[in-house]
Nucleic acid binder design. Structure first.
Lengths: 119, 119
DNA sequence: TAGCAACATGAAGAATTCTTCAATTCTACA
DNA sequence: TGTAGAATTGAAGAATTCTTCATGTTGCTA
């Protein structure tokens, strides 16, 4: 049996879905729990409709869910331990960036903050 | 202090770097140890110069190193536990794909094989 | 040194992805 | 019903990324 979509392509698509600053920030914010678009908008510096576009990408991939609550729409992580993924990525990034002082400093700062959540 | 390159942008770039089927396969293959381009080429269905282009992307990001050994060039993971990252990604993918039978089956098959290595 | 094999690089067109703007849906509430 | 706020959608041009082809470089071996 030949897979209709090769596994390594599904993986690539998954990572590509993560490959946008706004989408990363959304996922990070949602790790603290569900959050309405309004709040995401307040914390991420981006235009409303651009945020909507990025949220649509995340929704299509299935990594987040959206539910309407009256006036507002609340987003949440669909499942899966996104925090784990971010942690693993940060470990690698830390090594890759050794030598690039500024980013490294930020990463370490984030590490200190990352007790229950992971930035 | 304002970072010259925001952290979330570095993260996004990192994931974007992973967002290509050939690059994923290279990283997976290299988890079993360093490997010359010739062997990568034998296992990944892609044209030689396309592979070179993708290897260049990986090299620029710093996630792999290349060393010349006489005739051939040998690639290796630069460090960092790439396997961890892949594992975390697979965990999430498994959930996202629940319902998409074919891919799910492949993922589970891969899980079974993944004793010391992670596909 | 000539020739060949292994890789890398440069560049151009094709394909994707981003950003932004205008238009739309849905809800609340006066 | 009419208006306003919250969020999404559609579409178009800009910007990136991919693929491919031609050319370059390096090292082996005759």
């Amino acid at each position: 049996m030949v897979a209709p979509v090769p596994l390594y392509q599904a993986k690539a698509e998954f990572f590509r879905m993560l490959g946008h600053p706004v989408r990363i920030r959304v996922l990070e914010l949602l790790q603290d729990g569900p959050m309405p678009v309004r709040d995401l908008l307040a914390q991420i510096e981006v235009e409303r409709s651009n945020l909507s576009q990025q949220l649509a990408v995340l929704r299509r991939s299935g990594i987040v869910t959206a539910t309407r609550e009256g006036d507002t729409v609340v987003y949440a992580l669909a499942g899966g331990d996104v925090a784990d993924l971010m942690r693993a990525a940060r470990r690698i990034l830390t090594e890759l960036l050794a030598g690039q002082q500024d980013l490294l400093a930020e990463l370490q700062e984030a590490d200190r903050d990352a007790v229950a959540k992971s930035a």
